[in-house]
């Protein structure tokens, strides 16, 4: 068995960095969106819902191109980010993370929304009569009850972010050591003559990572604090 090369380990590291960072900063957004969809009625809710789900139904390349238009150096938002804050996202791992987050976002929102719809909002009312304000009631009652939905959403999101290819290569490009995640490195290997052994090792790494993610989420949802049976 050959050891993994520096390039391969770097791809693994970038993949992990991009996916974990995406999960972290997307979580509050996904929770907020799921809460709005599950609990609130507002004008334009159908449109809001459709926009969130768009990445599920369009090719990731389209998302990548849209991101380029919006956040690229010449983009509507990107040019301002660059001029005012000296932030550039194109060709950076942060750009790869944004691409992965947008594509995987609906997978995070859906399970949380479904879990929220299964929670009786009157439980929060009961918490309020016991002295919790609305915010405390949400965090002390509703959030723990929907935790299994959050874990499911986080896993689906994480897995989708790990596998992201089209939007990433379009928006953040395929730069070894910066934006070259496992799937991008694998793609490069398959395009290189004699790259098959490298490709096999990258496939192995991808499988190991996916397995680790599955086992972690299984372990999390089995912890007694999160295990719920409604009687």
């Amino acid at each position: 068995m050959h050891g993994f090369s520096a390039l391969e380990l770097e791809a693994l590291q970038i993949s992990l960095k991009v996916s974990l960072w995406s999960v972290t900063w997307t979580f509050p957004l996904a929770l907020g969106a799921a809460w709005l969809l599950a609990r609130k009625d507002f004008k334009g809710k159908a449109v809001f819902n459709a926009i969130i789900h768009v990445p599920l139904v369009v090719p990731p390349v389209v998302i990548g191109y849209l991101l380029l238009v919006l956040l690229g150096r010449q983009g509507v938002i990107g040019s301002r980010l660059h001029d005012w804050l000296d932030i550039g996202l194109v060709f950076t791992w942060q750009g790869a993370a944004i691409a992965a987050s947008v594509v995987a976002f609906p997978l995070f929102v859906r399970p949380i929304r479904q879990a929220l719809e299964g929670v009786d909002p009157r439980l929060e009312e009961a918490a309020v009569t016991l002295g919790a304000d609305r915010r405390q009631a949400f965090f002390a009652v509703t959030l723990p009850i929907v935790m299994p939905g959050i874990i499911t959403g986080a896993l689906l999101f994480f897995a989708r972010a790990l596998g992201e290819f089209g939007a990433t290569i379009t928006f953040a490009a395929n730069i070894p050591g910066e934006t070259q995640t496992l799937p991008l490195a694998l793609y490069t290997a398959t395009q290189t003559p004699g790259g098959d052994p490298i490709a096999m090792r990258l496939v192995l790494l991808s499988l190991l990572l996916a397995l680790a993610a599955l086992l972690t989420s299984e372990w999390l949802s089995r912890r007694p604090h999160f295990r719920l049976r409604r009687g």
Binding site: R122, L123, E125, A126, A127, T129, V141, P144, I145, L228
Partner: peptide, 15 residues
Amino acid sequence: RRIGYVFQDTRLFPH
């Protein structure tokens, strides 16, 4: 308000 409220459907916290 510190007003205890016992609901008909109990509303105990399932978690």
